[in-house]
Amino acid sequence: MRSVSELLQSPADFDLFSESETPDERLLEHGVHAPVLLWARAKDRPVVWGWTLLRRLSALGIGEVATVSVWGDGAEALALALRAEGRAGAYSWDELRRIGAGIRRLGLTRADAQFAELVMGRRGSVLREVERFEALPEVLRTTVRDGMLDLKTAERGAGLPESVLGVFVEGAARLSFSQRRVILGLLYEFCVLGGRPAGEVIGYMRTAFADPDPPAALRALRFPRLSELERRFGEIRDRNLSGSGVELQPPPGFEGSAFQVRFGFETRAQLLKRLEALQKLESRCDELFELL
């Protein structure tokens, strides 16, 4: 058994993980928890794993804790710490940054890939992932940290003016993940591909966020001619077929030459109603073909 307060004074090179609610407090009071791991090879025998546990024990007034000494080099010590924590793929971005810093501090930059499975639950480079996150503007780091955007989508937004990002973050909180992704993609097109001034794009965004369907509203601003085709199609369809039970579809993207109709019927009267509607449509179908 070792003194909790003494262990909390040891070098904090492996203090990488965020505070945890587990194990339950009552288990800790009964001494039911994993032992703290110490790195026997290092001079000061630093704590390799158990920092959050030590802080909780200290807060509960528990003075001593069981420890286990582990041997091996820095890479093995770090791998043990990660195995003991056992949350591959579930670390927060702040933890990932601390793990990345730990990898560098231990001189393990070139061996980085061997920790990928233990940290991210997949192959890759922990340091590269952290670098990508750190390269984001602060406002996007916050959205990624808060789980509002994935890293790849956020990177797409990295070239956007900060003022645009600010308005995006304000409005994005009430949107779904996929809606945010669509909007950020459109903002990228406005700002980077189209070189539109930030003020203009902010105006578009405010209009979109005021709409019940913000991605559709922003898309209509980005693709006004396609939206106009869709509007005209909807108007022709409703004027001729509304209430008739006949569904009419244009070819996707108005690309091609065939419209599709679909209907069902249960009685002669229903069939007659559908056919009359189609006949009405036939007499005005030039309007439809003009859309293609």
């Binding site: 996707p252 993207g253 690309e255 293609l292």
Partner: peptide
């Protein structure tokens, strides 16, 4: 490339058909 393009049957983006 900022113009209005739609995906065609071969997956490439093309101007609107009209």
């Amino acid at each position: 490339m900022f113009d209005e393009f739609v995906p065609s049957r071969d997956g490439k983006l093309r101007y609107l058909q009209p």
